[in-house]
Design a protein around this nucleic acid. Structure first.
Lengths: 117, 117
DNA sequence: TACCAGTACTCAGCAACACCAAGTACCAGA
DNA sequence: TCTGGTACTTGGTGTTGCTGAGTACTGGTA
């Protein structure tokens, strides 16, 4: 999707991953794969792993090492209480932003309508 | 709104400003003031000016110096054809992202409902 | 006159984040 | 043995918004 999505993901990717973990615990490789399935085709593994380490260090998730039949052990992340709280903040920040932008979008549509008549 | 909104603004603030200019040409100080009125109370002047210089260098806006009765001359920015095109891309990128996140939000709501019953 | 507040823009340095690229390690099947 | 899939790590880069200070011009006030 070009460079715009890269910048737009900053700050939101974190929320997306936390939201994913809220639905169900998961490990890095799995999360990356799911994101790609959901349309974030350009997401790089390194990005996701770095993000997971960050949210772990902030105490938003609990980690458990689980052996895998095929490869190194998996680090399974699950959202904890603090993470849920943080996710709630994310939703409200996101909603605020989305509302403003939606409003702007409608303002423009209205401006264009006036221009056309 | 804390640090979350700072990161979330990355990439979107540009679109917000371009969208503002699409409605009506404006100068930096004015844009900053409008953003604050719209709820982005923490927006700093320096951020907006830097952004304006960036989009000017990318050729997304035209600039015109207009004398002011009270203070230094104003640099009035207006969206040009290239900027409109770029703004269209912004809308589509944004819509994609907003859709995914909205979907995630609903997934969580559904998960919680199941948990409660 | 001197000073301050409001207007309007500039600039150097910083922190956070996503990307890039390469690497490690483990297993199964050809 | 070697390839491909799984799974995680790490060092470096570029973009972006924030911080904080500075410049400059005007009008009002003591």
């Amino acid at each position: 999707m070009g460079k715009q999505s890269t910048e737009m993901l900053k700050g939101t990717l974190e929320g997306i991953v936390l939201a994913t973990l809220a639905v169900q615990p998961a490990y890095g490789y799995e999360i990356t794969a799911r994101l790609r399935e959901q349309g974030f085709t350009d997401i790089v593994e390194g990005t996701v792993y770095a993000l997971l380490i960050r949210i772990e260090q902030r105490g938003l998730v609990d980690v458990e090492k689980v052996p895998s039949e095929k490869g190194p052990p998996r680090k399974v992340y699950s959202l904890n209480a603090q993470g849920s709280e943080y996710l709630e903040e994310f939703w409200s920040t996101w909603s605020f932003l989305a509302d403003r932008i939606e409003q702007l979008h409608q303002n423009i549509a209205r401006t264009n309508d006036q221009g056309e008549n």
